[in-house]
Design a protein around this nucleic acid. Sequence first.
DNA 1: TGTTAATTTGACCATTCAGTCAGTATGATT
DNA 2: AATCATACTGACTGAATGGTCAAATTAACA
Lengths: 223, 223
Amino acid sequence: MSPKFVDRGKKAKEIATAALHVFSQKGYGASSVEQIAVAAGVAKGTMYEYFPSKDKLYIAAVMVFVENFETGLTERMTPFDDPFFRLVEYIGFSIENCSMENESSVQILFDILQQSVLENGVFYKKKYLVREMMQGSRKMLTDILLEGVSKGIFQVNIARDVEKLAANIIAFLDGASLHRLITENYFNMPEQLTAAMKFLARILLVTPNNYDVDKMIARAVGR
Amino acid sequence: MSPKFVDRGKKAKEIATAALHVFSQKGYGASSVEQIAVAAGVAKGTMYEYFPSKDKLYIAAVMVFVENFETGLTERMTPFDDPFFRLVEYIGFSIENCSMENESSVQILFDILQQSVLENGVFYKKKYLVREMMQGSRKMLTDILLEGVSKGIFQVNIARDVEKLAANIIAFLDGASLHRLITENYFNMPEQLTAAMKFLARILLVTPNNYDVDKMIARAVGR
DNA sequence: TGTTAATTTGACCATTCAGTCAGTATGATT
DNA sequence: AATCATACTGACTGAATGGTCAAATTAACA
């Protein structure tokens, strides 16, 4: 009288990770539970043992994505002290996340947004979930900006509307990632971002001339 | 010996317009041909009389969208002479296109992008089509910028990388529209764009103090 | 090794949907 | 009114897929 036992939490996460792969390649609608089951190396029935529906499975997969994203972002920024360097890293991470070799990351992001916007989307009635999930990385950015102000590196006046500025920078990065995917070689991400960063440098920094933006971007991207 | 006759071109466009409505509400995947047929007031069979497949129907619908978009944009900008005013109108049009009362317009935009990015999307192998369709509005923006330079209103140095600047502005606008849809009231579009426009004004204008950006945005939005 | 409950499986069901097609309706022309 | 090519219809088909469940498998323990 003692049954077989598996670590259900761990297995659920494995399945969710496999699901993330498939969902990012094909999007929610075109990914079948069967496909995901194959990718996860289990039978379809097992999927429903761990997740009650395709929707819930998707949400779990998205949560894995957000987790990975934030971990990657944090890892990348921690080595740097100067807020402006951290900002460049933040943006560099966005570039990498939409490089052609590694599209899936942006693709799932847009699938998430799609699912929030369309009438019958998974997140249509649950936009608060998406907002919550996005809060993490926005907070990181806000913190960088405020830190820059308090260290006297960024101009004081940005502190008043930090939230707005952060939201705008993220909006721009997402838009840029997106255009990069569509326009392929026509939209050169490092060049575009270098251009944008130069503007940003002029707006943010107290002493713009202390930084060589071109060199910083080049280094951040050529990781 | 003389058959019934209908203006097939006109009817095709009517169907495509109805299709655009449905596609913007539900996205490509979740819109059924039957639904579109009902919306267009014809039978499903008739759809296939005018469009050989759902994909082709989608492309036709998207073309209607792009056409409408460019017409609207042009109409809105023509009354203005000053390039900076035209720029504000350009951006104001983006705001309107993502106001909550009129979401469909942004929604179809993101569906298009989704269809370009996902493996099995309608535009996945036809990204050039999307590029072509987007060229129109990008050209308008480039023209505004160059005109501004040649009239001595915008700084000369932006002329060198106009294309990049234009691409970045559009990327930002798209990203902003997107975030607006998800974050709903948390992302206040006019405020966000006013903030962004102020930065842009400082970067673009030779004499920023000649313009009252707040007032201009307020007017452009309160149309 | 046998027992037992947890775990896994995949055939099956019900539904949805793109696309087809045989037949019906239309209306310009004679 | 009769003709007939064009236009239109909607029932049908075949394939895909979300979700179920009875039966098979597994592994901890006695």
